[in-house]
């Protein structure tokens, strides 16, 4: 190649690179332009359709779900009990396969006799006084919390948002109006509201699918083992819940069916408490709820 031609080629490359970086479009021949437009649009659509819900988005949906639950059940404000539940919960969360979330795990007690527990997407776990009372000891409380942590690990709550709804969110985000004006467009707020409703229905009203429950039980047993708790405590607490499948609360959202219990017992049968478990049971007994 002659030096002059080489120089011109270098200039062209530089112009193309710098022009592209600065957002200056390089004119294409008329015959190529329509195909390029289609390619750009298709590429943008592929990005939109493929982006999953981010950790921060999961957090904001979870906050809204929690705020809805707290509008129904007030917080039980006992600093000693709150600290204890957070100590047990954090001991478990750090041994799970998702030890960190966007704003971390937080545990709180709801002031109601109705036994139930909720895993808000993003890491806030709520347990009722009714369910605390149902537990005999710390290991059984740990089993309940480990199961809820497992729902956060598997993103069971946030995955209740239908694919069609999420696609609509991404289409709205990609629209020219959203790009130009930004901010909380009314449509996006409505879609957020509908997404919160999807998650609320699953974790508060209808409950998770049977397969999600079984998967969460398996993860809970692993977490209990890794943390040093008795993994048989999950079977023990499920046994206590037997025969109440028709009742509300946790019996509807986490049905303790015979089949579920049998699978849990096969993985980790309930065993008599060890010395260390008895020490933990003592600190559990000292709390008032």
């Amino acid at each position: 190649m002659r030096p002059a031609v080489l120089g011109a080629a270098a200039l062209l490359v530089a112009a193309l690179l710098l022009g592209g970086c600065a957002g200056v479009s390089v004119p294409l021949p008329a015959a190529v332009q329509p195909a390029a437009d289609i390619a750009v649009k298709t590429g943008a659509k592929a990005v939109r359709a493929s982006r999953p819900i981010s950790d921060s988005e999961e957090y904001y949906v979870g906050r809204a779900v929690g705020a809805r639950i707290l509008a129904r059940y007030p917080l039980y404000r006992n600093p000693e009990v709150t600290r204890y539940v957070n100590e047990v919960g954090l001991t478990l969360a750090r041994k799970s396969s998702r030890p960190h979330t966007y704003r971390g795990y937080h545990f709180a007690v709801l002031d109601t006799e109705e036994p139930n527990a909720f895993a808000c997407p993003g890491g806030t776990i709520l347990i009722t006084r009714g369910l605390l009372k149902l537990c005999d000891n710390e290991d059984q409380l740990a089993a309940v919390l480990a199961h809820e942590v497992a729902h956060i690990v598997h993103k069971d709550g946030i995955n209740s948002i239908s694919q069609a709804r999420w696609t609509e969110v991404l289409t709205t985000l990609g629209s020219e109006a959203a790009r130009q004006y930004g901010g909380p467009a009314g449509q996006l707020v409505s879609l957020f509201e509908d997404s919160v409703e999807d998650v609320f229905k699953t974790i508060v009203v209808n409950g998770y699918s049977r397969s999600a429950e079984e998967k969460a039980d398996r993860e809970a047993i692993n977490i209990l083992r890794k943390a040093g708790y008795n993994p048989g405590a999950l079977a023990a607490v499920l046994m206590k819940m037997q025969g109440k499948e028709g009742a509300g609360g946790i019996y509807r959202t986490h049905p303790p069916t015979q089949e579920r219990l049998a699978k849990v017992q096969a993985l980790a049968p309930a065993t008599p408490p060890t010395g260390e478990e008895l020490v933990r049971a003592e600190r559990f007994k000292k709390l008032e709820f």
Partner: peptide, 10 residues
Amino acid sequence: GFTPEVEAGY
């Protein structure tokens, strides 16, 4: 996406 601004609207 679902940002603090969307939360404020909600």
